[in-house]
């Protein structure tokens, strides 16, 4: 269920570091299955997502695990591990699991925040002397942005050295690279919009303490193409 509940961005214990910037840009905030997110910026958010947009997903659940026995442990928990590093695999419940190395994995919630895998894994994991698998605080160490739109490749070319051309960078491929001089994880994960069209999309995760800097850099790079922030409602419609 995609039920947005009216909520102030600073009413909860967990607050995105971007909430002030988004407030200034006219964001309407709401609670979604326990997370305070931007519901929408403007009535044309859907059109914006097609053209060029960024959505702050930092309040959505995510987790990470690493260690030489991390793949075995995750498999035991029912996680479908990507076949090779720098790939991502959609899970049955809608979560996305990205393999950052043979021994390190990142689990992202679905956009509806209905998939429980990330939270369930975090709750299940315990320090165990016999299992070399260690949890990582990905919900707090990294901010999470979703970038979408037909101008996305051109925009990214201004801030990142990777060639994201379709034939070079397939859906669910992962790049661990530098964006605006910040270490970042980019995961291509094209999204389907309400009108049935599919649009190019990347998840971008960067150090949470620099997300305001990243937001400004991306906004600056997007201006040339009319890019703007958007809310989650248009993605979930």
């Amino acid at each position: 269920m995609n039920e947005f509940v009216t909520a102030a961005p600073d009413s909860g214990l967990r607050r995105s570091q971007l909430y002030r910037k988004q407030q200034q840009a006219g964001a309407e905030f709401a609670g979604l299955n326990g997370a305070t997110v931007v519901k929408q910026f403007a009535a044309d958010d859907a059109q914006q997502l097609k053209s060029l947009a960024m959505v702050d997903l930092s309040m959505l659940p995510r987790s990470g695990f690493k260690g030489r026995q991390a793949p075995e442990w995750l498999t035991q928990q029912g996680v479908a591990i990507p076949a090779e590093p720098n790939r991502a695999t959609r899970q049955e419940d809608g979560s996305l699991v990205a393999s950052l190395s043979v021994q390190e994995h990142l689990i992202l919630s679905d956009l509806q925040v209905t998939a429980g895998m990330s939270q369930q894994l975090a709750n299940t994991w315990q320090m165990d002397a016999d299992t070399a698998c260690y949890s990582l605080p990905r919900s707090d160490s990294h901010a999470w942005l979703l970038l979408t739109g037909e101008h996305l490749r051109d925009m990214l070319a201004k801030v990142c050295g990777i060639d994201f051309a379709a034939e070079e960078f397939a859906n669910h491929q992962v790049a661990q690279t530098s964006v605006a001089r910040l270490n970042s994880i980019l995961i291509r994960d094209d999204v389907q919009l309400a009108d049935g069209s599919t649009v190019l999309a990347f998840h971008l995760l960067c150090d949470v303490s620099s997300v305001e800097f990243m937001w400004d850099c991306l906004q600056d790079a997007m201006d040339e193409f009319g890019g703007k922030p958007a809310g989650l409602a248009a993605l979930l419609a």
Partner: peptide
């Protein structure tokens, strides 16, 4: 070309500004 100078802020950064803090830089922080 574009030059990027990353900055780092703590989650309480804006509370400091609201309280009238004079900020200093420690590396990128």
């Amino acid at each position: 070309g574009r030059s990027f100078y990353p900055a780092r802020y703590t989650n309480m950064h804006h509370r400091h500004l609201e309280a009238g803090a004079q900020m200093l830089q420690a590396g990128a922080w």
